[in-house]
Amino acid sequence: MSTLHEFQTGFVKALWSADEVLPEEGFAMGGIPVAAGLAVYRNNVFAGLAGVLGDLYPVVKMLVGDAFFAHAAQEFVKSHPPASPVLAEYGGDFPDFLAAFEAAESVPYLSGVAELELARHQALSAPEAEPLAASALKAVPEEHLAVLCFEFHPSVRLVASVFPVDAIWAAHQKNCEKDQVFDVSAFDIPDRAARLLVARPGESIETMELSHEAFDFVSRLIVGEPLGRAFTAAGDGWDPQQTLADLLVFGAFTGFQLTEG
């Protein structure tokens, strides 16, 4: 093992834990104290990552306030060091973390709002792709429709929550200034679940509300199940043709393949 590797392992260990120190003899004298230098690097890393989370989850931040968010971010960063130098990809586990974060128990919709913010963030920077023309299915013989598998637009994300996270998010957009704490109770938020398809088929991010059955149907299509099987599994009592037509007009697909029946 190289001495450089040992130095770096020791440095990161010290950087990651507030209780650790670096050996004085390992650094040149004549400048600021070793502990003070380490504190700068530590702050760069932790404050930097907390800033990334704050930019990605602004509505969550305003729902709980800056101090609570800073605490949650600090705890998340400690247990989730970044694995990529692309910081736009950091923080994807934050919604799951919030769902299990005891201190946030009194805000049960928090992780759902975070999931919606993550979906919007990912949709915004997904590669561009030309949506499938709404008329494209007309050329497919009816007997082949059952084995048709859709290719989804790369920006498509599905978000489901037992809370009306889309309504909470929308109320925030309309009513809140940046950096102002957002009090949900001040708004008339309907008591319902949210099942959403979020995507950027054109220039802007768009959201499509789905019924329970339609959400199940799209969830199956998105993992590659053929149309016939997804139809059957989604059960009765809804209008799959209309959902399919809506998805086509929305621009959720970029293509399709006919698989072996």
């Binding site: 450089l4 990161v12 990529s84 130098p85």
Partner: peptide, 22 residues
């Protein structure tokens, strides 16, 4: 500088000892 070790990517530019090995 360096920022990656053991699968972790730190968002900072960390200092190096200027040795022959480095």
């Amino acid at each position: 500088s360096w920022s990656r070790t053991g699968g972790v990517c730190l968002p900072d530019l960390l200092p190096l000892p200027y040795t022959q090995e480095v």
